[in-house]
Lab assay of single mutants.
Amino acid sequence: TSEVNPQMLQDLQAAGFDEDMVIQALQKTNNRSIEAAIEFISKM
């Protein structure tokens, strides 16, 4: 599995997102940004 940015993971979990969804979103967006991860999650 590709690495996820631990700070982004922590921030998104703090915002109430599920850890598994956050990890998948960060991997799919290559840790580009929190906004990109949220957009990915919203389309899941």
Rank of each mutant, 00 (worst) to 15 (best):
I41N: 04
I34G: 06
K28D: 07
R32D: 07
V4Q: 05
Q24G: 06
T1R: 11
N30M: 02
Q7N: 07
E35T: 09
S2F: 11
G16L: 00
D20R: 10
V22Q: 03
E39Q: 09
L12W: 00
L26M: 02
Q24V: 13
E35Y: 05
Q27A: 10
I38C: 10
L26C: 04
T29M: 00
N31V: 02
S2Q: 12
A15L: 13
R32P: 04
I23N: 11
K28Q: 13
K43T: 13
L9M: 08
Q10F: 07
N30D: 11
L12A: 02
M44Q: 15
P6Q: 15
V4A: 08
R32V: 14
A25E: 01
F17K: 01
T1D: 14
I23H: 06
R32W: 03
E35M: 06
N30P: 03
I34K: 14
I34V: 14
L26A: 03
M8S: 03
D20L: 06
Q27T: 13
Q13D: 03
T29L: 00
D11V: 11
I23R: 14
V4R: 03
E19Q: 13
M8A: 03
L9V: 12
M21H: 06
F40E: 15
I34N: 10
A25I: 02
T1Y: 07
S42F: 07
D20A: 12
Q13H: 04
A15C: 06
Q13N: 04
D11R: 10
V4F: 05
D18S: 09
I34S: 08
I34A: 12
I23A: 10
S2R: 12
A37S: 04
I41D: 11
F40T: 09
Q7F: 02
Q27H: 06
E35L: 03
G16M: 00
S42Q: 15
I41L: 12
E35R: 06
Q24N: 09
Q10G: 07
V22K: 03
S33Q: 00
N30A: 08
V22T: 06
I23W: 05
V4K: 04
K43H: 15
T1Q: 12
M21G: 05
S33E: 01
E35K: 09
K28C: 10
I23F: 06
Q24A: 12
V4P: 12
L12T: 02
T1A: 12
S42R: 14
I23E: 10
T29P: 03
D18A: 13
D18W: 00
A14G: 08
V4S: 04
D18Y: 00
S33D: 05
A15G: 03
L26F: 03
P6L: 10
I34R: 13
F17L: 05
I23M: 12
N31W: 02
D11S: 13
E3M: 07
E19N: 07
I23C: 08
E35N: 08
R32L: 09
Q7V: 09
R32A: 15
F17I: 05
R32K: 15
E3V: 01
E3P: 11
D20G: 11
P6R: 14
I34C: 13
K43C: 09
R32C: 13
L9H: 05
M8P: 01
P6G: 12
T29C: 05
S2G: 14
Q24H: 15
N31K: 01
D11G: 03
G16K: 00
K43S: 12
Q10P: 00
A25Q: 01
F40C: 13
L9T: 09
F40P: 09
F17N: 10
Q10K: 14
L12C: 03
T1V: 09
T29I: 02
G16N: 03
I41C: 07
L26D: 05
Q7R: 10
K28W: 04
E39H: 11
E39T: 07
K28V: 09
N30E: 14
L9E: 06
Q10H: 14
S42W: 10
Q7K: 14
D11F: 12
S2E: 13
Q10E: 11
D20Q: 11
M8Y: 09
G16A: 01
N30K: 13
V22S: 15
T29V: 08
A36E: 15
K28M: 12
T1S: 14
N5A: 00
T1M: 11
L9C: 10
N30G: 14
L12H: 02
A37W: 00
I34H: 11
M44C: 12
S33T: 02
T29W: 00
M8R: 02
L12E: 03
S2K: 14
R32S: 14
E39F: 00
